[in-house]
């Protein structure tokens, strides 16, 4: 197994854990964490694309730049989501989204 392989499996595991968590957890905060972990897996995969096993050529900067953009997008979305979730919680006491029916 190469270094690439080790991290590739890690990325796959993060995605799987995140997807499972996002589908099975109802608590809003946990759901947001799960989505961020999906993001972590996606970022890891992208950074890995730029990784060079041999030291001659430096890593590819393009995927790194994409990931930096992705991190900023993810931070914006998740902190906005937390702000909305806290408003909702403050007004209704909910920690979960209502299940069925239009509220």
């Amino acid at each position: 197994m190469t270094t690439f392989g080790i991290y590739a499996v890690g990325a796959a595991l993060l995605l799987t854990i995140g997807i499972r968590g996002a589908l099975r957890r109802k608590h809003l905060l946990r759901r947001i964490l799960a989505l961020n972990i999906i993001g972590g897996g996606a970022f890891l995969f992208l950074v890995l694309l730029g990784y060079r096993e041999s030291g001659e050529a430096g890593p590819d900067p393009v995927p790194q730049a994409l990931v930096l953009t992705g991190i900023v997008v993810a931070v914006s979305i998740s902190s906005f989501a937390i702000v909305i979730a806290r408003r909702l919680n403050a007004r209704t006491g909910r920690t979960e989204l209502p299940e069925e029916g239009l509220d």
């Binding site: 995605l15 989505l35 999906i38 993001g39 897996g41 996606a42 993810a74 979305i77």
Partner: peptide, 10 residues
């Protein structure tokens, strides 16, 4: 849209 966004990026 967050979930979709991460899938799209991947």
């Amino acid at each position: 849209t967050f979930a979709a966004s991460m899938f799209y990026l991947l």
